[in-house]
Design a binder for these strands. Structure first.
Lengths: 126, 126
DNA sequence: TGAAACCACTTGCAAGATGCAAGCAAAATA
DNA sequence: TATTTTGCTTGCATCTTGCAAGTGGTTTCA
């Protein structure tokens, strides 16, 4: 049987370079992932909450992104209410550490893209 | 003839929401655009320089991204040397304002993605 | 307890984006 | 002027995205 390391390498699409920016983009360099993170920062916890965001993420994309974020340790699942079988999503410490990225993007958008407005303040600490 | 505003609206794919994060992602929410910005911050100015980066961006993608960044005012073209017909790319003020975004992503990658390393410091001012 | 509503997805498919290799004309260099 | 370099474009196979519809488990409420 193949060593575990090679199995992991087959599952992961392989890094393009050791650059931390390139690595980050391998994980969330697309049109939707950081919007899911934004929603989590804003307090969304359930599948339907993300779907309800104004950008209207397709449900198959949302499923895929949540799964990738789970497997990369950026989000985790916990019971939605005690005794419930339903799960809710929330940021891990690794995910919460993306706040400065979101904040920088928000600030840039507000400063340079006309007609944008922030619904809520992104707080520094979780 | 149609008013200029509607022509612009036809050219742009239309904003998903007024959220500054969503707006930013409409412009650079993909696997390559921010790597081009990173290279510009690191001092790359010519087409071949971007191609030579370790991630190996395909030339058709690079053409497309540079064009989009030009038309959105993030980069501009100036003569490469005086008297030369060749042009070089460089960040505008709007583009240079993306430094904090890149810096936040670099910091996150360094902190949370094993095996990443920064080639150079991203300076605060241009 | 049973029926209805809700929730969190999955599936299928069309359209668009990406990746690769090859080609090409203008500009620079020898 | 001949050669090389540069900055692209083109064609095509593959992967990703977006939309709509469907599905099965969970919760709610009479």
């Amino acid at each position: 049987m193949a060593p575990l390391e090679s199995k992991d390498r087959a599952a992961m699409p392989a890094r393009r370079s050791p650059c931390p920016v390139a690595c980050s983009l391998d994980l969330f360099g697309d049109r939707w992932t950081l919007l899911v993170i934004r929603d989590l920062i804003l307090g969304h916890t359930r599948f339907k909450d993300f779907v309800a965001s104004p950008e209207g993420i397709p449900t198959n994309i949302l499923s895929d992104r949540l799964e990738r974020l789970l497997s990369s340790g950026v989000v985790e699942q916990v019971p939605a209410t005690e005794g419930s079988k339903r799960l809710m999503y929330r940021l891990t410490e690794k995910g919460a550490a993306l706040r400065p990225v979101l904040k920088a993007m928000r600030d840039w958008g507000l400063a340079w893209e006309a007609g944008t407005c922030a619904a809520r303040e992104i707080k520094r600490a979780s």
